[in-house]
């Protein structure tokens, strides 16, 4: 499958934080969920992909082109939604159109206003008076109206109610329908991704811990709950991490079928992304 985005061995050093050897491959026509706790490195990775921050080493390729040599050309085909940044809130959706139509060559005014109407946004009201959900919808309408091939979203659902979150997730699914466009969406609200993401990439403390298809992750990985005595009989190489609770021990296993076969009596539950994330971060080997 052709990749829309390829990040190879990306490193970025700050005084108190470091992105270490980040590798991401995003194929065409898919949604990739980029998960991790706050401060794990999601935003820094997205900023690096957008060349908003200078990387120390590594390479970033989009649509088969090197970012550092084709930045302007590449950015014509990217739509960006940032949680905490947009044009001034004193602009109306009409004003936004007048600004952005000068920015992107492929800007489609009709498509933009189609989204504005679909999202029920008032055209002549300044966005300062919008709800959080409405503000996010305006950002998304702006990001997709120049028909980008890649949509990059940084925490688009944080601070939104479940209905608004659901609306927004539907937009992403519509966006990749043509099979040519992809979405990379960073979030710490993992439940949002369980139904829509095709791939999950998990970052922790500046390192990619895993990058797999959602099905592989949710269908093959498993959570085992056992007592202290049962835990002592389990080989360390048969689980990824364990988390000791007050009354039991939770194990994250990579292949629940193999585990069941080997330890006959154990019950292995289907994990949620949140459980995987928590055991990875809080657990121990």
């Amino acid at each position: 499958m052709e990749n829309i985005l390829e990040v190879k061995n990306l490193c970025k050093k700050y005084d108190d934080f470091e992105l270490k050897d980040i590798n991401i491959e995003l194929p065409k026509g898919v949604i990739m969920g980029f998960i991790g706790e706050n401060g794990a490195g999601k935003t820094t990775t997205i900023k690096s992909i957008l060349n908003s921050t200078k990387i120390n080493s590594g390479s970033i390729k989009m649509f088969g082109m090197e970012l550092d040599k084709n930045e302007k050309k590449i950015k014509e085909d990217i739509g960006v939604v940032l949680d905490d940044s947009f044009l001034s809130e004193y602009l109306t959706p009409n004003d936004v159109n007048k600004v952005i139509k000068n920015v992107y060559k492929n800007w489609d005014e009709n498509l933009y206003f189609k989204y504005i109407e679909e999202f029920k946004l008032p055209k002549n009201k300044i966005s300062k008076d919008f709800s959080n959900g409405m503000k996010m919808k305006l950002k998304i309408a702006t990001a997709i109206s120049h028909k980008p091939k890649l949509l990059l979203l940084d925490e688009p659902t944080s601070g939104l109610d479940p209905v608004a979150r659901n609306d927004i997730l539907d937009i992403f699914q519509d966006f990749i329908k043509d099979g040519e466009s992809s979405v990379l969406v960073s979030t710490h609200i993992t439940s949002d991704l369980e139904h829509i993401a095709d791939y999950i990439t998990f970052i922790n403390n500046g390192e990619i811990l895993l990058s797999k298809t959602r099905d592989e992750l949710l269908e093959q990985y498993g959570i085992v709950k056992c007592s202290k005595e049962e835990f002592e009989k389990i080989d360390k190489s048969d689980y990824i991490k364990c988390r000791k609770n007050k009354y039991d021990i939770e194990l994250l296993v990579q292949n629940k079928f193999d585990f069941k076969k080997k330890y006959n009596s154990q019950v292995v539950d289907k994990p949620t992304l949140e459980e995987i994330m928590v055991i990875y971060i809080k657990g121990e080997k």
Partner: peptide
């Protein structure tokens, strides 16, 4: 932050 994502 947003403007630097534009093709410019």
């Amino acid at each position: 932050k947003y403007i630097t994502t534009f093709p410019l």
